[in-house]
């Protein structure tokens, strides 16, 4: 997901009896679905985990602008250009909402962004894949945003107030992203040329597995899940969300008239769910560790934007100081 493999720093879940009175009061508040607000007491590990998760989420939004920005200058019609630009702008906005929520925890945005730029912070693995044809703008909207929405909808009820409120805003704005993406694909499949149809299938072939990987490793390989669930900063297991995504996506795939690059994909009448083949977790961990096709390029793009802008930000600060002096 946008926040994958978030380290909680706790290997074992404490029972209420093992907790200090403060911790216990905190946990009971969470159990009662009362939001934790910035000035409330919270365990240090909760604060740190949230900072990691929210910053990862925010970094993903910001890095996620790049694969789409890659086609913004080549969008084929004025309408598509406007839609794509609005969508990318929303992503920048969502990154900013999330950084803003993160800062209520006492984290510093610039420090967290430095961690992204020097490789200490993670972001979603999906954005390390290249966008190679126009249909990728459709697929990213349909599959990538689709997967993100499945994850983000429950996060609207996450235990930390500012994070939950940021997610409500994000979800409200994101509803058009997935539809926009699907419509790009549907238009080409229904009214496009053979070349355009081939573009769509090629794009789905490349993004299908990476999209399923977005939810993170299976629950038995997610050592931090239990603590995150107890704190309600994660509300469903990775596998549960992946299944939910797949179940809603396969009928849409069929509607497009496209296929998935998975020979094992089939509907199970008994369970009412789709079954799918083995995910290549080696690829996932490689990408997460920095060895995806675009990892270096994405980080370099972000780093150089911020580094090249240093003189601009400095000038703005210098000017503000001058003006304040003059006014005094």
């Amino acid at each position: 997901m946008y926040a994958q493999l978030v380290e909680t720093g706790t290997s074992k879940l404490k029972t209420l009896d093992e907790m200090s009175p403060e911790e216990r009061q905190f946990q009971e508040r969470i159990n009662d679905e009362i939001k934790i607000e910035p000035k409330n007491w919270m365990p240090d590990a909760y604060r740190k985990t949230l900072i990691r998760q929210i910053s990862q989420h925010a970094h993903s939004e910001i890095v996620g602008m790049l694969p789409e920005g890659n086609w913004l200058t080549r969008a084929p019609t004025l309408k598509r250009k406007l839609q794509l630009m609005a969508k990318i702008q929303d992503e920048a906005g969502h990154g900013l909402y999330l950084y803003s929520a993160m800062e209520t925890l006492g984290a510093d945005r610039d420090e967290e962004i430095d961690k992204l730029h020097d490789g200490r912070a993670k972001y979603s693995s999906i954005f390390n894949y290249p966008t190679l044809n126009w249909a990728d703008m459709g697929t990213v909207g349909w599959l990538v945003d689709g997967a993100a929405i499945v994850n983000q909808v429950p996060l609207q009820r996450t235990s930390y107030g500012p994070y939950a409120r940021a997610m409500i805003r994000v979800c409200k704005e994101e509803s058009f992203h997935q539809r926009q993406g699907f419509q790009i694909l549907l238009t080409m499949m229904q009214e496009g040329t053979d070349d355009q149809k081939a573009m769509v299938q090629d794009s789905i072939n490349r993004f299908w597995w990476p999209a399923l990987m977005m939810f993170g490793p299976s629950d038995e390989h997610s050592p931090n899940s239990a603590q995150s669930m107890a704190w309600k900063i994660k509300r469903h297991s990775n596998d549960e969300l992946r299944q939910r995504f797949l179940d809603q996506t396969v009928p849409q795939l069929e509607l497009l008239g496209c296929t998935a690059p998975d020979p094992d994909l089939k509907y199970n009448e008994e369970t009412g769910h789709y079954e799918f083949g083995e995910i290549d977790w080696k690829e996932f961990f490689d990408v997460v560790k920095g060895n995806g096709p675009c990892n270096r390029e994405r980080i370099e793009a972000r780093r150089s934007a911020i580094d090249n802008g240093a003189w601009v930000r400095d000038a703005a600060v210098a000017y503000a100081a001058k003006r304040q002096r003059r006014a005094a």
């Binding site: 920005g69 920048a92 950084y99 972000r302 934007a305 911020i306 240093a310 930000r313």
Partner: peptide, 13 residues
């Protein structure tokens, strides 16, 4: 559009 992702500050994006 060519400046997307290259602004000197996130707010400027």
């Amino acid at each position: 559009a060519q400046l997307c992702g290259k602004a000197p500050a996130l707010e400027e994006e």
